[in-house]
Nucleic acid binder design. Structure first.
Lengths: 340, 340
DNA sequence: ATGAAAGCGCTAACAT
DNA sequence: ATGTTAGCGCTTTCAT
């Protein structure tokens, strides 16, 4: 059974291919009668436009490539949801690729996506090597980074102020008198967001006149178990941590459980703050205070920015910094006595 | 700056387009010397094959469409990860689309994907209307269902035995003497997996000679809050539930908290079982007993099945039922005393 | 082992 | 408002 093409429709409707094309693409320069006739023929023959042929002829595929470390991570899944919703709204589809943060795989994926003639590229993942930058700069289609940025801040990116966010969380704890604040970071090798947040931690301490005790800094992989383990170490020290900040909610929940398993009460004995404010924060008792990172919005704004580039619209600024804040719940003590 | 095409490479290398094509596609019928020469030219010119043109000429895009209710759901994210890994392994990319379970949107997405000439379609989502079936049957490319199936079981699908899985969970509780077992289902309108599991619940009770008390059946939306609410009702009844089975881990955790918030102990006062065995099970105290649904595998196997169809390999059986089991943790009581 | 040439199904000038 | 036609960049016979 041969596929019906635009040519078949043209013949059957007694018009030219161009007219059918116009009808399909909503070109107004078609007489209503003709349009109706063509539309009927399309329906009758069950014609379905071939987007690949269209892509070749028009040089636009209405498809964007999305490279993400791991879709099974709550954080990236939420971001991707934002991306897809906006993509959809602007009639784009997304080709989703998991990179597992492996640079070679990322490079390979970018190339594959470029071969597939995507109209734009959305990149998430923390370490941008020179090879990445090179590749992106040779790309004929726009590239936007989400939740990361390049060192020179030359590429379009959507982020939050990670340093300030971490700083704020530490400050909150410092103001309550804590001096032993454990910090559970992401992987040590992680460049941008990881480094930034660590810098925020150090800054806050130094500003408070406190020396940074390196043993209070632990590295996890954003998952529960690593948080559990890191926190276990943090409270097993001679001069144990009295507060813990983890760079993901999942690790923070691990931290809460590590404390509870050892008989420490949250927040009385140890205050805990997470990061991202995923819906996990409500799924633990006490509920988790967390630094709000607007994940869905980061994805959505990044995709919106990309559509602007793809439309060759003028962009006011390439680096979008979304606001963050801290959502306080029961894993931290109330700062002031409530007044009725 | 014009893009370099296969024609440019051919000219520069002093060979024909056909030869370049052969080299690019790894056709062995090329003299090593020629191959080397072509490869060098490709590198020198920075040639990147245009997959859209290739798709048009070869009628294969090495892209598959994936329709999913919501990527921000842990369950579907994990499934998708399985899909993508296998797709990648077989050199396919995936176009990911969120349907939000809305039938019109699903239909629309299928059409879009078909227009984009995907080589195959992977569909997840619970309700298959006649329109879906019709559409799928007119599709020229293979379609595989994951974690759902059509009523007539005519379409290729990868599932677990949902009825039996629910039955097993209920049986576990019945064997411990429970007679008031609350059941927190997914949305009431949900067809296949929801109905199946509910049937398993009813079967188990009836088999035990227990009447089904409809007030013990509640409907949620798979998310935490709905589990919290449903469980709250289940334990607020005159003759309250002494055990609760929820159709997702998230709802089960909500159930645990609902009980704990009211001062009931898990598992002493109420035993709780979740569904899916996501990593959430370890993120709650007591840790959650859950029916294991091999999410990643369902996605992986579904994608593998799809590759077979796309290769026109012979398929032994269209309906793959993956094994399930119950992973017992501390939210249920140990059945037998442990012997040292 | 290599080349020539005919499409693949559509869009986009350009002409009328 | 509609038709004609030349590509888009590649694969794939079919020759040689």
């Amino acid at each position: 059974m041969k596929n019906v093409t635009i040519y078949d429709v043209a013949r059957e409707a007694g018009v030219s291919m161009a007219t059918v094309s116009r009808v399909v693409n909503g070109n107004p320069n078609v007489k209503p009668v003709t349009r109706k006739k063509v539309l009927e023929t399309i329906k009758r023959l069950g014609y379905r436009p071939n987007a690949v042929a269209r892509g070749l002829a028009s040089k636009r595929t209405t498809t964007v490539g999305v490279i993400i470390p791991d879709i099974s991570s709550l954080f990236y899944a939420e971001l991707t949801r934002g991306v897809e919703d906006i993509a959809n709204m602007y009639n784009y589809n997304i080709i989703l690729c998991n990179s597992d943060q492996r640079p070679e795989k990322e490079i390979h994926l970018v190339n594959t996506l470029l071969e597939k003639q995507v109209d734009g590229l959305l990149f998430m993942g923390s370490q941008l090597t020179d090879e990445h930058i090179d590749l992106f700069s040779t790309s004929t289609v726009p590239v936007v980074l989400a939740s990361t940025k390049d060192e020179k801040e030359e590429m379009p990116s959507v982020v939050i102020d990670y340093k300030q966010a971490a700083y704020d969380a530490v400050k909150l704890l410092l103001d309550k008198g804590h001096t032993r604040i454990g910090f559970i970071s992401g992987p040590a090798k992680e460049k941008y967001s990881g480094q930034e947040r660590l810098a925020g931690y150090r800054n806050a301490l130094e500003e408070a006149g406190l020396a940074v005790d390196e043993t209070l800094i632990r590295y996890g992989d954003y998952r529960y178990d690593s948080g559990l383990k890191a926190a276990g170490e943090l409270i097993d020290m001679a001069d144990r941590a009295t507060a813990i900040i983890a760079m993901s909610d999942e690790m923070a929940i691990g931290a809460i459980h590590a404390c509870q398993d050892l008989g420490l009460n949250i927040p009385e004995d140890v205050e805990v703050i997470g990061f991202d404010n995923t819906r996990l924060t409500s799924m633990v008792r006490p509920r988790l205070t967390s630094v709000v990172q607007p994940m869905y919005d980061i994805g959505a704004v990044a995709m919106r920015l990309l559509t602007k580039f793809m439309n060759k619209e003028k962009i006011d600024n390439h680096l979008v910094v979304l606001p963050h804040r801290i959502e306080e719940r029961e894993s931290t003590k109330k700062q002031y006595t409530e007044i009725k």
